[in-house]
Nucleic acid binder design. Sequence first.
RNA 1: GGUCCCAUCGUCUAGCGGUUAGGACACCGGCCUUUCACGUCGGUAACAGGGGUUCAAGUCCCCUUGGGAUCACCA
Length: 464
Amino acid sequence: MSEVRLRFAPSPTGYLHVGGARTALFNWLLARKEGGKFILRIEDTDVARSTQESLEAILEGMTWLGLDWDEGPFYQSDNFPLYREYVEKMLAAGTAYKCYCSPEVLEKKRELAISEGRKPKYDGTCRNLIEEVPGAPFVVRFRAPLEGETAFDDLIKGRISFQNEELDDLIIQRTDGTPTYNFTVVIDDATMGITTVIRGDDHVNNTPRQILLYEALGYPVPKFAHVPMILGADKARLSKRHGATSVMAYRDMGFLPEAMVNYLVRLGWSYGDEEIFALEDLIQKFSIESVGRSAGVFNPDKLLWLNAHYIKTGDPQRLAELLVPFLQERGVDSSVGPDLVEVVRTLQERSRTMLEMADGAIFYYTSDLEYDEKSLAKFFTPEARDLCTELVARLKAMDDLSHDSIAALFDRLCAEKAVKMKAVAQPARYALTGGSASPGIYELIGVLGRDETIHRIQRALDTK
RNA sequence: GGUCCCAUCGUCUAGCGGUUAGGACACCGGCCUUUCACGUCGGUAACAGGGGUUCAAGUCCCCUUGGGAUCACCA
């Protein structure tokens, strides 16, 4: 069995956040690169905190990013009989034992140990009980080795080792009979044949316990790769107070999935001096070994820059489709008025997000713009009025609205009136858009069409 | 506090014993220009500190300092 098998195993207790998305991405990339399998497993053993909404949000996030899975989603909640079976096996083999210590007693001992400056680890009270206590509530603990060393070669961080005496006999089954995390991951990763575990580095401390479990169970130990955390600008772990952490929130703010993927992969990974990577590129170029070992700060500015890049170079047709919902939110109906694809073309290089693009597109679909007195006075000087009147007259006599002929019209007008381009372009822009910043004047006229252009300029001229 | 991890411009990073320490975002200028942008050219800016090893250290080793993670019948 040489096929690599990777997995992403979120617990459905919240949306898909950028950190989770990145580890999912790394897993997906390695699976695709190696021609292996990418498996999705839902860690919902904490029934109380798991929700259907979270599950759907996670799947939606992954789908949006383009991270498709080959197997699953599998649910740990479906595996309770399996876990139970393994607990029984370990009990029978003596690699696990029943512990009757109550949580209260344990807590007291823990406090005492801390106050005396000792390690708060399980003292092994029940480790060598000869007889069972019938009817008494119990948890099942793993009988971990007392001495020796457990080490592994992390694909990202290198060799990491722990003294076994630092580890204690972790609980694998609770009083209520449900299994615990460190146990279920091992059972699942082992039975699913996971060959490489890529996860957040908040799990490194769990790794030696899990390795011991693999060994006790007689399963091969997978490779591990612990990816560093994502931090906020203040170097603290990224959280809501740093702004949006949900990947879907970024979609709603007008980000493109390819920008998100590109940003996420470059946070902690690099390929020479390259910055722009399509998903297809990444499959070829990605390698887990070149992921950095230190935590990285999430930089919204760079994400924005990448998003602008993908908007600029994106297919106008696709962008137009993505733009529609943003327009609708603003009460704009793009089915009447200028062709949305043409509108998009004029906005691509001046929008960093789809949201900005939507804002920039509103005027195209507002035939009767508001012209306020102040701006009118500023742009529509007597000279400007003359020029605009002349512009309207010439436009009326024109059929060809190509960029070149509009440019020629303006050139002639400026030459004959001996004025600068600015003298006519600015008032016309104001009349056409209701503002002073917009796409080029020729593009504007081309997209709006002759009649609408004349309508708007005339209307501005008539307003007073 | 114990254990574990981390450390190059403000940020993401390249560097894998010999470099004017490179690129990108952001920032600051110039150019382009009908506005806003795009683009383009240029600039400011970093090896946390201290010891070693070596002819030579950002690169290897140790210590210090500073960050972070984790120490549950949560995952």
